[in-house]
């Protein structure tokens, strides 16, 4: 299945958001996720299934003003 992760196309094996984070090697990294513009809390990543063309955003802590 092909999806977009932070706007980059990716072919993935997994069906869930939690599986995607594992597949991409985020492990226990502190990140926040959104799918198709909507926030997905960590507690819902396991049950959230990704569809073809899904737009996933994975954000991490960063410097800010």
């Amino acid at each position: 299945m092909r999806i977009l992760v932070n706007e980059e196309p990716r072919d993935i094996e997994t069906a869930t958001l939690a599986g995607l984070l594992d597949e991409l090697g985020y492990g226990d990294a502190r990140v926040a996720t959104a799918v198709n513009g909507a926030f997905v809390p960590a507690s819902r990543r396991g049950s959230l299934t990704l569809d073809e063309g899904a737009r996933v955003e994975i954000l991490a802590p960063m410097q800010g003003g």
Partner: peptide, 22 residues
């Protein structure tokens, strides 16, 4: 201190290192 959220490329741990520092 103010902080933000930005995309982190796969494999980069810059955000995690920043969070640890803060």
């Amino acid at each position: 201190v103010t902080v933000s959220l930005r995309r982190e490329s796969v494999g980069s741990r810059a955000g995690q290192a920043f969070w640890s520092l803060i």
